[in-house]
Design a protein around this nucleic acid. Structure first.
Length: 562
RNA sequence: GCGUCCGUAGCUCAGCAGGAUAGAGCGUCGGCCUCCGGAGCCGAAGGUCGCGGGUUCAAGUCCCGCCGGACGCGCCA
């Protein structure tokens, strides 16, 4: 598909490397602008205005009106360019190209010890939006969910359930799990206990995972792949982590007094034995910029979460994706450096080349009637995603979770969301879609069909079309700048974690507003411009439907009053 | 103490690999339905972009230092 914005950027980039083209802050300046002349002014020792004029004379962007204003160079699509694009958009929007980049996105990965919560909902909304946008552009993307179905928390889960099965026989474990769901599980697993507590815990956790999947289905998310910690533990990857780190001299033993010892043992089994004698196995993550070295195996012989996660990431690396994206909650801030250190160490050793980025999303604060709801996982006082789905529904949650930039905190007022029949940007946007849908039906009943737009009959039409054509620009804005450039120019860049799905959401609101305004002031059926305006409306509808779909929100044909 | 994120209109927040008079929604006030869905539209009021320095032709955006808030800093996950 021929995208005016991309054509513009490419034409300029042929002559001026690193040129940036952005949307103007006011449409009176045109559609796009570049500050290239300001940037060049210093090197060429000429006023920006003069340079701008020289640039404009030396490049000719087809189909675009170019103007120098001060040092700015403003671009406005000609009517013919704009019209061609709008007519095309009315038929459907396809931005996909054969991008030669594969990406794995891992997100949510909640412990299978309880129901999903609102923080998981945010991770899910962000992760799924990123996956869908990348796919829309043609990237080969897989989504993945890592299941921590092994280790101490699974043992605690088993014991928590056992306690409810037989209070006399089993003590409630320290830091065990509380909540109604534990009692439900106790009933379910009452007769299924066998002597292997760990396996019992794993079975319970898989049951919990099934209900998490049910929740995710309600939330509109289906993962491509699930990876189980229990399988990673039994695989060759833990050994391979050790092999790499030992060969690179990046591990050592340390006892609780701080005495250190080199690692002579070859096999993981023997290392674990050594650890049982009072030594922890340490990883020299400080060599890679971490604050301090990290424990891989505790002095009781138990591997840490970090060690298993390292093995899991080695597994990811071996699958040879170009890019690995992890989306973590704010409680994992302190974890980023050590994981990056580990991935770097392992990548070097095994000569694996995936780029690794971690997106940390901000926390979610729940409010009810203006007051913050304090949650405590330990006490089993959590507001679950299921409850939130019952309360406000999938669409509102998805939309609201993406309204803020991923890194910032998010205040979610349930009581506000609940009474959101009006004043809600979700409904506002959906309504624009439903309105057009209903308009098209009305037109159909009256035997009127969309027809090719050949010109604009007034500024309202032109203005709406200009906002409409920004869609690809905002899709690309969701990506970090470097990845965006790699899409446009087919170059390879190092990516960063700055994804901004919130910009797409804002755009959908803006476009909806533009359409409501257009609709308010312009009769469509019976205007004498029936077919043309239907086409314009159709293009808007396609964009809104596509945009909502990318953020996992439904685009209804009609709004149903609650 | 160290690290990360945040401090922008009464409220919730956009904008930040520097660029044109700082934007939106909600709330407040005032208007608009003979007509394709008023779940809509129009207008008004409202800001020394936490404070102080610095870099720059240009700083809400970058750098440094404060102040305030959240989170992280475990042989937990």
């Amino acid at each position: 598909m021929d995208i005016p914005y991309i054509n513009l950027v490419k034409t300029l980039a042929e002559r001026f490397e690193g040129v940036e083209v952005d949307r103007t802050q006011d449409l009176k300046f045109g559609d796009y602008y570049t500050n290239l002349a300001f940037k060049m002014a210093k090197d060429y020792k000429k006023p920006p205005k003069v340079i701008a004029e020289e640039i404009v004379e030396s490049v000719n962007v087809e189909g675009v009106y170019t103007e120098v204003a001060g040092g700015y160079i403003n671009f406005q699509l000609n009517d013919s360019t704009l019209l061609r694009f709008i007519n095309r958009m009315a038929k459907g929007i396809d931005l996909s190209k054969n991008v030669n980049t594969s990406i794995l996105v891992e997100f949510i990965s909640a412990n299978p010890t309880g129901p999903l919560n609102v923080a998981n909902a945010r991770a899910g909304a962000i992760g799924e939006a990123i996956v869908r946008v990348l796919r829309f552009l043609g990237y080969k993307v897989h989504s993945e969910y890592y299941v921590n179905d092994a280790g101490t928390q699974i043992l605690k889960l088993a014991l928590s359930v056992l306690h409810h099965i037989d209070k006399n026989k089993y003590e409630f474990p320290e830091g065990g799990y509380k909540g109604e769901y534990i009692k439900t599980l106790a009933k379910l697993f009452k007769d299924k206990y066998h002597s292997d507590t760990e396996a019992f815990g794993r079975e319970i956790s898989h049951k919990i995972l099934e209900s998490q999947k049910d929740t995710l289905r309600r939330f509109g998310i289906e993962f491509d792949n699930f990876v189980f910690e229990s399988e990673i533990r039994g695989s060759e990857y833990p050994d391979m982590v050790i092999d790499a780190l030992r060969d690179r001299n990046l591990i050592y033993y340390q006892d609780k007094e701080g005495n250190t010892l080199g690692v002579g043992e070859k096999r993981l089994k023997d290392i674990v034995e050594r650890c049982r004698s009072g030594y922890a196995l340490m990883f020299k993550s400080s060599d890679f910029g971490d604050d301090k070295d990290r424990v891989l195996i505790r002095s009781n012989g138990e591997p840490t979460y970090f060690f298993c996660d390292s093995a899991y990431h080695l597994h990811k690396l071996f699958r040879n994706y170009d890019i690995l994206i992890d989306i973590w909650g704010p409680d994992h801030y302190g974890y980023v450096q050590r994981m990056k250190a580990m991935v770097e160490a392992l990548s070097e050793y095994y000569k694996l080349k995936s780029q690794f980025v971690v997106i940390i999303h901000g926390q979610v604060n729940l409010y009810e009637d203006g007051k913050m709801i304090r949650m405590s996982k330990r006490e089993g006082k959590i507001y679950t995603l299921d409850e939130l789905l019952d309360d406000v529904g999938k669409d509102a949650i998805r939309f609201f979770m993406l309204l803020r930039s991923p890194s910032s905190e998010l205040n979610f007022d349930i009581s506000l969301a609940r009474k959101f029949e009006k004043d809600n940007p979700v409904y506002y946007t959906q309504y624009a879609h439903a309105r057009i849908s209903s308009l098209l039906e009305y037109a159909r009943e009256n035997g009127i069909k969309p027809s090719r737009i050949k010109d604009f009959s007034n500024d309202d039409e032109r203005l709406l079309a200009r906002i409409l054509q920004f869609f690809p620009y905002y899709i690309l804005k969701v990506l970090p700048p470097t990845l965006r450039n790699s899409y446009i120019f087919d170059h390879h860049y190092e990516i960063s974690a700055d994804f901004s799905p919130n910009l797409l959401v804002d755009y959908l609101i803006e476009l909806s507003h533009a359409y409501h305004k257009f609709y308010q002031n312009n009769r469509i059926v019976g205007s004498g411009r029936d077919g043309e305006r239907l086409t314009l409306s159709l293009a808007v509808m396609n964009v809104i439907r596509e945009g909502l779909n990318l953020i996992g929100v439904s685009a209804p044909e009609r709004m149903v009053k609650v």
